[in-house]
């Protein structure tokens, strides 16, 4: 908790000059027990995900559920139209001609799975987000050029404005900023 009287912060931000120093800082931050953290880099860096243990996203599970729903729904649609509602004799084949249902089933599987992927991704990451406090730091614009940033949010249970600032400074960043809410 921040000290009484001090302005409430969104968090603290450290700036790094290289990907390697950011990765090391992320590892140490995770080791120190901070969990409400995020890193910003000009390009995706696999090791940062690993260092902050960010791989456990729920999107793959949503996609799987969407795929299963699409698969069952597509087959049910074919079955309902061809067997229950509009049974027709096509070339003497049985009404439940499952091989001819497979292309439709396949397409609806892909369709619903990709809908779940896009909508699920947006629902979980909160985009579109017109305002985010990190942009209050002027130098943060460099995150899309050649600098690497690590943020520890004030919501983190271990966050303490002074102690966390000292911790971030010990990671050898080029600078540590307060992130106004």
């Amino acid at each position: 908790m921040s000290a009484p009287g001090a302005a409430r912060l969104h968090g603290l931000m450290a700036e790094f000059r290289s990907a390697r120093s950011l990765i090391r800082a992320c590892e140490r931050t995770h080791e120190a027990g901070y969990r409400k953290t995020d890193a910003y880099t000009p390009y995706p860096i696999e090791e940062v995900f690993e260092a902050l243990h960010l791989h456990r996203s729920k999107v793959p599970l949503l996609v799987l559920i969407g795929g299963i729903l699409g698969c069952l729904g597509g087959f049910a649609l074919c079955y309902w139209t061809s067997v229950i509602e509009y049974p027709m004799n096509i070339g003497g084949r049985p009404h439940n001609s499952w091989p001819s249902f497979i292309p439709v089933t396949f397409e609806t599987t892909i369709l619903v799975a990709s809908f779940f992927a896009v909508v699920g991704m947006l629902a979980l990451n909160g985009l579109p987000m017109p305002y985010h406090p990190v942009f209050n730091v002027k130098r943060f614009a460099l995150a899309s050029r050649d600098r690497y940033f690590l943020v520890i949010e004030a919501e983190d249970s271990r966050f303490d404005a002074e102690e966390t600032r000292r911790f971030l400074a010990s990671l050898e960043p080029t600078e540590v900023f307060d992130v106004e809410p």
């Binding site: 070339g91 084949r93 091989p99 001819s100 497979i102 292309p103």
Partner: peptide, 12 residues
Amino acid sequence: ALSQFLIIWSGN
């Protein structure tokens, strides 16, 4: 495998 089967099954 399915394409080959489906085409032959449809042609009959």
